[in-house]
Design a protein around this nucleic acid. Structure first.
Lengths: 350, 350
DNA sequence: CTGAAAGCGCTTACAG
DNA sequence: CTGAAAGCGCTTACAG
């Protein structure tokens, strides 16, 4: 890679000082430059294919126009991909770039996503939580003590100075519940994984609240024994989840819904559960309704209608970017805890 | 964010010159510093929580230790997620960071992934192709004329100076074909989408070659009318693909294989095809074998055995990172066109 | 064994 | 209307 032309080269070519070149190229408000030299400079810049050196600018201005995104591992789960896409959208509209990190520390004092900001190579952090859990306490502390702009996604750190964007899992479940109960269901079976994440608690609570509004109805919970493995990259682990679902479906779900009345429903935490359930019910028990609280990594392929309510990850990512940029600009925030309402429940025909 | 301590602060505290501090902190080989001052400097650095300013280093050394990755859109397709994960692995082991770009130009002369290198904020480019297509000609030209370190993933630019990592789709199909034919198949139906990508050509050719090794056998091709939409983010577009598959399955695939003999096989380009086919054959035609040339974004959920051969995207991503870093270091490359062999075909029980 | 000085490429008060 | 100069934080020949 050959040496790039600098502001000096332009200055030399036009016969002015580097300062003048800088003023023209930056459209500096204070300085009026005669139209003649102005044009000459712009032409020379074009001719030399001048591009300002970003490292020099970052050093001088102490601004890199770049943001660090921390994402633990798996990019193959649709949630993370969608969230990241939303962040990209939000940053792009403001001209910010994105550095991607995992949680690794590489032997440094801090994990790289913090290190990058301390190095002035990035101006803030968007932290994407893996399973609703907060960043480590020592990370939070160094973010706070260094006053680093920060937004947590899909988590909710205890320190109220830390901004976050979270998704209203409770409301999603609540709305699905109300819809089903409003349509006449008396019993709802909630099929959830055994993982003890906040998300699952919220969903279950949302259903419970919906049921409370409809006296005489009940929510039954069936728990799939599944602890997350965090490597969705592999088809085999996907298929393990599938195996588990099938097994649990036969042993527990099907027997339970055998005596369900028409209009009663099963609400599935995951898309994959809904899909298996739908194929299992293929010929029989057609009158039992199926709902899903996420699309999962996989499209729903059932031969039936499924009521679905999904978190709006794309929008949430955009909001996270906006929230971070406001911090970077030093704006005071009326509210640094944004909660994203879910999509309205809708039936999908497949 | 408060001002960070600099090398000057350390120098002042210890009572030496900034140069000395720099020598110590960098373990400079030429300079021998007395153990006393050495320790004092290291302690002061620790006490002040000194972190070198990356922007200043980048300016001075003309090296950012960062690489630009260009990825057009969708992070939700497993291929891209896996590839990106591999790149992260490869870069991390060398201490390089990663900036993520799409193909947008934001009104600049160059797309941002090129601009970032020209700005000295990144040292090279890994370009992830969307559908096997090469980067635009004007991009390739500016990469070449500026001698930017570059590796294309899953594509094969015509200029031989441009390095690339590609996946041996032909061989994957060939091996699957040989396996099936070796097991006694006389006829193979290849079910592919109508998109005219190199990948599809290669796969078809691979099957043809396998068949040529087994006289008396034949490969029949059935083409699903599908042109890519490039927004896998949405569940609805996934379900459109599903609809298409189902329809085509009934209209074309099932009738064709009705007279297949036991051992004959259908090879599917996509995992989603294989899945639909497997459910369609659920009770009947059990003796027809099913194979898939990709896992797709979705796990295979069929109730049957599927022979599968997948491109090794994770490994390919790692190789791309290595190849780029070698260019950045100025090493001369014996071979700048790496072709990644596929996984050996294997039956998966589901 | 250690330090003073120049310079990476840019910006911006300050002075004409 | 324009320019000389200082400085962002670091590194590294060069000179003691």
């Amino acid at each position: 890679m050959k040496a790039r032309p600098t502001i000096k080269d332009i200055a030399a070519q036009v016969g002015v000082s580097p300062s003048t070149v800088s003023y023209v190229l930056n459209d500096s408000a204070n300085h009026k430059i005669s139209e003649g030299t102005r044009q000459a400079i712009l032409q020379a810049a074009k001719a030399l294919q001048y591009i300002p050196n970003g490292a020099a600018r970052a050093l001088r201005n102490n601004s890199s126009h770049c943001v660090s995104v921390a994402l633990e591992k798996t990019l193959t789960q649709a949630r993370f991909g969608t969230l990241l896409q939303g962040i990209r959208n939000g940053l792009r509209s403001e001209g910010y770039w994105l550095m991607l990190f995992d949680f690794d520390s590489r032997g440094q004092l801090y994990p790289e996503f913090i290190e990058s900001v301390l190095q002035s190579r990035s101006e803030g952090i968007i932290y994407i939580s893996s399973d609703g859990s907060d960043p480590e306490p020592e990370w939070r502390e160094s973010i706070l003590s260094n006053h680093l702009p920060f937004v947590g996604c899909d988590c909710c750190p205890p320190e109220e100075e830390l901004a976050s964007v979270s998704f209203d899992y409770e409301r999603g479940a609540f709305e699905v519940g109300c819809r089903l109960l409003g349509e006449g269901a008396r019993r709802i079976l909630y099929w959830r994984p055994s993982v003890q994440t906040d998300q699952e608690q919220y969903r279950q609570e949302g259903l419970r609240q919906a049921s409370a509004l409809y006296p005489g109805t009940e929510v039954i919970v069936s728990t799939l024994p599944y602890e997350s493995a965090e490597d969705g990259a592999d088809v085999f682990s996907h298929s393990q989840v599938s195996q588990l679902c099938k097994q649990h479906l036969v042993q527990d779900i099907i027997p339970r819904i055998a005596q369900f009345q028409p209009g009663d429903a099963v609400v599935c935490a995951w898309g994959v559960m809904a899909r298996h359930l739908a194929s299992a019910l293929n010929g029989t028990l057609r009158s039992v309704k199926i709902a899903s609280l996420s699309a999962g990594e996989t499209p729903l392929l059932a031969e039936s209608r499924v009521l679905i309510s999904r978190p709006r990850f794309l929008y949430g990512g955009e909001e996270a970017a906006r929230l971070l940029l406001r911090q970077i600009r030093g704006e005071t925030l009326a509210n640094n805890r944004i909660v994203i309402p879910p999509e309205s429940p809708q039936y999908i025909e497949l």
